[in-house]
Design a protein around this nucleic acid. Structure first.
Lengths: 218, 218
DNA sequence: TCAGTGAATAATTTATTGATTGTTCATTTT
DNA sequence: AAAATGAACAATCAATAAATTATTCACTGA
């Protein structure tokens, strides 16, 4: 790692610390420079402007959020259905706890999005790719019956909108949201899977929250 | 109608006019009093405070919005499925055009909700009742197969969250949203209706926009 | 040449003040 | 007695001044 890379990281670390403690607006470039034992001017050799530091932090945050969701893919499960349900519930829980425990993270994301609308579009796209992979697998294994995987992915993602950063829409508790999401998933799963012997697919069971799943949100 | 009722209506009319033209914050009680040829003090014999005038206007707006949606129920259609789809699309279109043509209406609603959170909860509940009626009908006629109508109503309503005041979530065009919603409804309908002869239910077709449907939004 | 500086400046935020507005109520009118 | 008034007062807003901050850049030391 080159010298200038570690300097850049030092700035990011200092910014992460201050942004999460005091928020983006109340953090000054002079403070970041102090933390890194350098002059304000030098910061601008690594970032075009203050907002770009926030963009970089939010970008990493978004990537690690998708990783949390993707981690669910790695654990062995019995079916694509279970995979899909676990990913959707993980999404609800991860974003819920994020807003609960680290409200400044949302604030930062909102500031970034208001300045760079493309940021949100790309974050959503990354998330959809996870969904798409699962649908594709389920399709290939014959578990799902899906005519058009691409458009069904979009539908699934849109139908679960309320369960991403749910506190922005409602003040329901997490338990209430989980119950609700189970109903949504029940309907969706019945839409994706053929009925067996004339009986519709069983209801979605709320998956248990894995212990390690939310390690980096505390 | 009593004298004091008509006075109250005069105030509401004046407020509606000014709120929609200049917005709630820029409208003063003195102006409303002027419009009604009365003194500021007299307004307070009819409303506890300025915000209560806004609440009353928003309440009526919300009721007439549900009426627009309910109007779809009155026209004869071939199936519960079609009813459901028309209601959901009407909701998307109505709220979309509302934000496009009368942004002050949203502003007012947001001001009311921030002061009276219960307002939003009740509006959503009213809307859900329309959904529930359709599901119930479809269930009774045997067209839908629904184990629990109440929880399925909640699921349906939650899954279509993105298509109520869609511009708050995305900057997609109405046409894009309609295409997306069709995909969502396709999955949901397959979840509600049993497959025929092993073939899944047909895809949702975007219903044509009725001419008279949006009369009071222009 | 490269990494870094810090004073100068432009842009933004905050504080202050004066003006406007929401609300009340003792009083007047009908 | 009911309906309405308008002056008084507290709360809020708008305008401006003052202070702070983001950003630039000519310059310094390795």
């Amino acid at each position: 790692m080159s010298e200038s890379d570690t300097t850049r990281e030092k700035i990011i670390d200092a910014a992460r610390e201050r942004f999460s403690h005091y928020g983006y607006p109340k953090t000054t470039i002079a403070e970041l420079a102090d933390d890194c034992a350098m002059s304000p001017g030098n910061i601008y050799r690594f970032f075009k402007g203050k907002i770009d530091i926030a963009v970089e932090i939010a970008r990493r945050e978004a990537l690690s959020a998708v990783e949390v969701i993707e981690a669910v893919l790695d654990c062995p499960v019995r079916s694509s259905r279970q995979r899909l349900e676990e990913v959707v519930f993980a999404d609800l829980r991860y974003t819920f706890h994020l807003l609960e425990n680290r409200p400044k993270t949302l604030e930062l994301a909102q500031i970034v999005v208001s300045d760079r609308p493309q940021f949100q579009i790309e974050s959503l796209r990354r998330e959809r790719r996870v969904f798409q992979r699962i649908l594709h697998e389920g399709q290939a294994s014959g578990e799902f019956f899906i005519e058009n995987v691409a458009s069904t992915t979009i539908a699934l993602h849109a139908a679960t909108t309320k369960y991403r950063y749910a506190q922005l829409f409602t003040n329901q508790t997490l338990a209430e949201l989980e119950r609700e999401l189970a109903h949504v998933m029940t309907v969706i799963m019945r839409g994706l899977m053929p009925a067996k012997d004339g009986k519709p697919v069983a209801e979605t069971i709320i998956p248990p929250e894995e212990a390690g799943q939310l390690a980096n949100v505390s």
